[in-house]
Write a protein that binds this DNA or RNA. Structure first.
Length: 484
RNA sequence: GGCUCCAUGGUCAAGCGGUUAAGACAUCGCCCUUUCACGGCGGUAACCCGGGUUCAAUUCCCGGUGGAGUCACCA
């Protein structure tokens, strides 16, 4: 019987980039490692930024990656609703904000945008920039507030932060973090449209939903101390904070939707496997005590210990992701692989070839599925190659020797009926033995003639088996023609 | 710029006072081989700088430097 409860709390503003996914994953793992509860909460308090379809992306991504939530908008666990706009509709946040106003921990503010803007550009006597609200409306009398309200003036509710001293909060990864209170802004709790701000709704909901571990990206590290004042004012217990190190691009900048960084779905479209993406992302900011790198989600649940998380940001390295994806592809049983590979093969191959044989050849040679195409194009049509290709130092071949070999082999291949790889290979071995030359001396020209490519998946006879007698002979003839 | 965080090879990342400073990706070379790939073997490559503390610092403390994050009626 565990008491760990975590949540993934995205806002439906677009696609899920890998940073979001990693946060969701860690929240899931922390809960599941302790047999706890993982929940999904939708933070849609900004109606302007709401993006149509974003909700579906969130659901789809969590489902496909296997990060299934125990509670959420579609699975009430008793502390719902799990969508903040729905909670707002019941007046929940306003109720708590008003409580703070009554306690004297918060106050109504009627300052308009112009005044706030002018505040930002003004400079204090000491010459330093004023970065926080000047508490102008804190001095309003009860009567003035009432009058403004009655007048229908737009208002917000701000928290009253102390201006002296320091505030310290504890993060399980980063330790104690202390900031001067003068830095703390009288942040807005309730916006003029009646919706709570993220900062406020987050604290209220985390408490009401019994969240024990707040897992989020460390871009929130600097706003965390403000939360403590809120918890303090309410007399609530502060949850365990687990701030995850940032994931950055190759320029060491934070991943963001705005900059067009890869989302989970982009990666899938690029041919990556969900399992590989999840596995890779898990290792960005965390590592097991041994050297293992390949983990299924279940294995991660078992192994994951958030105390082993690192503090420094990690670069998202597509090259390593590709490697890992290749590992997953190689480990796939053939039928599963074929199912995924078939569409890519069919994009290139229209002829009546045995596509499974082609797939077999390609499985150990690709890292992502679209790689298939460049490997197999020659099956469909012989490319117009240069006869320079017949020259290979190690094989001791050149245009002349190749011509001779192909000329001698042509009638043999024409006569042969069995075009299985084994039979063809036996034929070539026999030829090589008679000729008293190295395998490559004969294999290289044949492979070149039937493929027209420098490198191919599979050798000469494997290719011939697939394209069949008629095409093989035609291609060898073509080779002889080119070389003559 | 203020505040905060971070700092081991190109990248991910072990290490938590005494090590020949792991491992993985990438890279290079060799082997295997019917080309390539797979697989196997090996190489190059790192503790940001300066002070302390200590018999002993990559490891602890301070300062610097560098990088990042954050400073909204966005989350």
């Amino acid at each position: 019987m565990s008491t760990v409860r975590t949540r993934f709390a995205p806002s439906p503003t677009g696609r899920m980039h890998v940073g979001n996914l990693r946060t969701a994953l860690y929240a899931y793992l922390i809960a599941k490692h302790e047999n706890g509860t993982f929940m999904l909460r939708i933070e849609d308090t900004d109606q302007e930024r709401f993006v149509n379809g974003a909700l579906e992306i969130i659901y789809r991504t969590l489902e496909k990656t296997g990060l299934v939530h125990d509670e959420g908008p579609d699975k009430d666990g008793g502390v719902g609703p799990y969508v903040q706009s729905e909670r707002q509709a019941s007046g929940l946040y306003l109720k708590y904000a008003k409580q703070l106003v009554e306690q004297g921990d918060a106050y109504y503010c009627f300052c308009d945008k112009e005044r706030l803007d002018s505040l930002k550009s003004s400079v204090s006597e000491s010459g330093t920039e004023i970065v926080v609200y000047d508490k102008h409306c804190l001095n309003l009398s009860k009567e003035e507030v009432a009058a403004n309200l009655a007048e229908g003036k737009p208002w917000v509710i701000r928290i009253n932060m102390p201006t002296e001293g320091t505030t310290t909060f504890h993060d399980d990864i980063y330790g104690d973090i202390t900031v001067p209170n003068a830095e703390l802004d009288d942040m807005i709790l309730i916006k003029s449209d009646g919706y709570p701000t993220y900062n406020f709704a987050n604290v209220i909901d985390d408490h009401l939903m019994g969240i024990t571990h707040v897992v989020r990206g460390n871009e929130y590290l600097s706003s965390a101390p403000k939360y403590n004042r809120l918890y303090e004012a309410f007399g609530w217990e502060v949850p365990v904070y687990v701030h995850c190190p940032l994931i950055t691009d190759e320029n060491h900048k934070k991943l963001s939707k705005r900059c067009g960084h890869s989302s989970y779905e982009d990666l899938i479209d690029q041919g990556f496997l969900t399992e590989a993406v999840v596995n890779y992302v898990a290792l960005l900011g965390w590592s097991p005590s041994d050297n293992r790198e390949i983990f299924s989600l279940e294995e991660l649940v078992e192994t994951f210990d958030y105390h082993h998380m690192s503090k420094s940001p990690a670069v998202f390295d597509q090259v390593k992701l590709k490697w890992m994806n290749g590992e997953y592809i190689k480990a796939m049983d053939f039928d599963t692989f074929y199912e995924k590979a078939e569409p890519y093969i069919k994009e290139i191959i229209t002829k009546d070839y045995d596509l499974k044989k082609i797939a077999k050849l390609v499985q150990s040679r690709i890292e992502i599925f679209p790689d298939i195409k460049e490997h197999i194009d020659f099956f469909e049509a012989l490319p117009d190659y240069d006869i320079e290709m017949y020259t290979h130092k190690k094989m001791k071949t050149n245009a002349e020797t190749s011509l001779e070999v192909l000329k001698e082999l042509l009638p043999i291949f024409e006569a042969q009926e069995d075009y299985s790889n084994d039979a063809l290979f036996a034929t070539l071995k026999e030829y090589v033995a008679k000729k008293e030359c190295k395998n490559g001396y004969a294999m290289w020209p044949v492979r070149t003639a039937v493929s027209g490519k420098q490198n191919t998946p599979g050798g000469a006879t494997e290719i011939m088996e697939i394209i069949g007698k008629e095409e093989s002979v035609a291609r060898i003839r073509k080779g002889i023609e080119k070389l003559s």
